[in-house]
Amino acid sequence: MSGAYAVLHDPQGLLDAELPLDRAPHEALVTAVLAWKNPDLAPRDYQQIALQLTGHARALAADVARHAAALPRNDGRGALADVVLREADGRLSVPLQGTARCVQNRARLVQALYTRLDRLTGPASAAP
């Protein structure tokens, strides 16, 4: 049946919580993208890379939000995570473009989310 789709209802976010992030290849992609000087790719190639980074950023933001929600209210790491998550929401709402700049912006977002995740999952003394 073409054109048919199913809507997934997962209000507790259990499916996301069970899927580990595939960090190494995404960090390698971020490193490569941020090292670009004058890339000469087709717009569709930029869009594919941006889509990959966008999907990972969304999963990563959900992971950051879960870890932040588990912190005590007086833990400042949660407040900093909220700032990063608001910034991520704003940046992810910008439509994708087939440009190196768009891809690099998504790569910086993934990098920022991993930095925040590491600070949430590390020892409290490692904050902010």
Rank of each mutant, 00 (worst) to 15 (best):
D10K: 01
Q48I: 14
A42K: 13
G98V: 07
E87Y: 10
L60W: 03
L21C: 03
L53W: 09
L15V: 01
L92Q: 11
D75F: 00
Q12H: 10
D10R: 00
L29A: 14
V83T: 14
G122L: 08
R91T: 06
D63F: 05
Q97R: 15
G90V: 04
A62E: 10
P128A: 07
T121Y: 09
D10W: 00
G122S: 14
D10S: 00
A57N: 09
R23L: 07
Q12G: 03
L92F: 11
G76K: 11
D82A: 13
E18P: 01
A57C: 08
R106Q: 13
A28L: 10
D45E: 15
E27Y: 05
C102T: 13
A79M: 04
R108D: 10
L120Q: 01
D22S: 10
A126P: 10
A59N: 10
L96R: 15
A127L: 06
A112H: 10
R119L: 15
P123R: 13
T115K: 09
H56G: 09
P20E: 02
A127P: 06
D45A: 15
S125V: 13
H67T: 03
H9R: 12
V110Q: 05
E18H: 00
A62W: 02
A79F: 04
G98N: 10
R23C: 05
A35Q: 13
D89F: 13
V84W: 02
R73N: 07
L14M: 07
A59F: 04
R91C: 04
L80Y: 12
A24Y: 04
L15H: 01
P20Q: 03
A24S: 11
G78Q: 02
M1I: 15
D16V: 00
Y114F: 15
V84Y: 04
Y114S: 09
H9Q: 10
L34S: 10
V84I: 11
V33S: 09
D63H: 11
P11G: 02
D45S: 14
A124I: 04
R73P: 06
R108N: 09
G76A: 08
A70S: 04
P72F: 01
Q47D: 15
V64I: 06
G98T: 13
A50L: 08
D40W: 12
L71M: 02
L109G: 03
D118S: 14
A68D: 02
L8S: 02
E87W: 04
G78K: 02
Q12W: 04
L92A: 12
L51D: 15
K37C: 05
L117C: 05
A17N: 00
D16E: 11
P128N: 08
R23P: 04
D82L: 04
D22I: 02
G98R: 12
L21V: 01
Q48W: 13
Q104E: 06
G90C: 04
V64N: 06
N105E: 15
P25E: 08
I49T: 15
R44P: 12
L120N: 01
L19Y: 01
A4E: 14
P123Y: 12
Y114V: 05
V7K: 15
A100Y: 07
Q97D: 10
A28N: 05
S125R: 14
R101Y: 05
A127T: 07
A35G: 06
